[in-house]
Simulated assay, not measured.
Amino acid sequence: MTVVAHLKEKYLLLFFLAVGLSMHSSSFSQRPDYKKQVSNLYATVNHYFYIADSGFYREHAVKEKEDHPVSYLWPLCALIQAANEMERVWPDSNYMDQVYKVIEKYDDPAPPSPGYDSYPGSFKREDRYYDDNQWIGIAAMDAYFRNGKKRDLKMGKKIYAFMMTGYDSVAGGGIYWREGDMNTKNTCSNGPGIIVLMQLYQATHKKSYLKQALDIYNWTNRHLRSPEHLYYDNLNVKTGKIGKHQFSYNTGTMLQANVYLFEATKDSSYLREAEKVAASADSYFLGDGKFRDDYWFNAVLLRGLEHLYKHTGNNQHLRAFAKCTDQALANDKNTSGLMGKDKAVNLVGQGGMLEILARLAWLQQKGAI
């Protein structure tokens, strides 16, 4: 090769590298300021949903005919996790305190173990759902790893004790969906159950937590994992029929369960499985550039994707997720600044988007997206 040809090749290489870096930088710069977005949405949510006089939240921004006076517990499960993620972004804040105070209004000390009702007993006692309680436990344990507060570890242990009252050997194991309903065992009560157990294992190093987590993990994969490494909704233990709906939050919890098990055991097969789950989730739930499911369901998926990124450094799935978020911000924000143009705006969806935005803001700060 002549000197001229060599120089020409070198300059062409530098040119294409510069173009590539410019395009990469441009894609980053075109991202919304997620920190600003979450701050604005949080203020708007408090304005429309928080009832300062009673210390509760309402279910919808505009009261629906069938609404109860205050919200169910599920939206608070979304808000407590969002508050934790916001405290990561603003380390000197205390967003969780307000939500914690409201959640305690749903406390029910009834046997066999204290837990949280789906609706506050001061109005009307309703069912206790294992998954509702688990979401609270997960947020509390995430907070514990961040700030070391005994309050949060105590909450994690309380949720563990309650959720295990829903475990038995029918159909070979697994946790029921709600207390007193012995019909179905669901991915939404087993996936987050594994995470609570793994969080407690990380916090205490008690091997019994790991053993129980593995038991539930193996049961869930045996009965509810699809051939594509996504997850079905439930097993009817009376009939053996599988409810084959696939939701992003179920896949998200099992994705994160694999990452936790990799961290605990150093067995790389769990990390490989997590990567397969993430790839399928990316294709199925995010594949056309917009969210297939509601915002909170996707927030749970993002938890798993973020946790996986910690070990792989591959931000492909996070970028696909951010693209869907950007699409939603551009096309599904109403005139009040809340998420949802075409249907009644409920609190769980707003909580889900708050968590998504806070997580993306934190990742944006770290240069991950």
Rank of each mutant, 00 (worst) to 15 (best):
M1Y: 11
M1C: 07
V3I: 15
F15Q: 14
F15W: 13
V19H: 02
L21F: 08
S25R: 09
S26G: 04
F28R: 10
F28I: 13
Q30G: 06
D33V: 13
Y34H: 04
S39F: 08
L41T: 11
N46Q: 15
I51P: 00
H60P: 12
A61G: 10
K63C: 03
H68M: 09
S71V: 04
L73P: 11
P75L: 07
P75S: 06
C77L: 03
Q81C: 00
S93V: 09
D97T: 04
Y100A: 00
I103F: 10
P109E: 13
P112H: 10
R125G: 06
D132K: 00
N133L: 05
F145S: 08
R146L: 14
L153Y: 08
L153M: 12
K154E: 11
F162V: 09
Y176T: 13
G180Q: 08
M182C: 05
N190K: 05
G191M: 02
G191I: 02
H205D: 03
K207M: 14
D215A: 10
H223E: 15
E228Y: 06
E228H: 11
H229S: 15
L230A: 15
N236Q: 10
G243H: 02
H245W: 07
M254Q: 10
M254S: 11
N258Q: 06
N258S: 14
D267S: 15
D267C: 14
A279V: 05
D282A: 11
S283H: 05
Y284R: 15
D288Q: 08
D294N: 12
L301M: 12
G304H: 01
H307F: 01
Q316W: 10
Q316D: 10
F321V: 05
A330R: 12
L338I: 12
M353I: 02
E355T: 08
L357Y: 05
L360N: 06
Q364N: 12
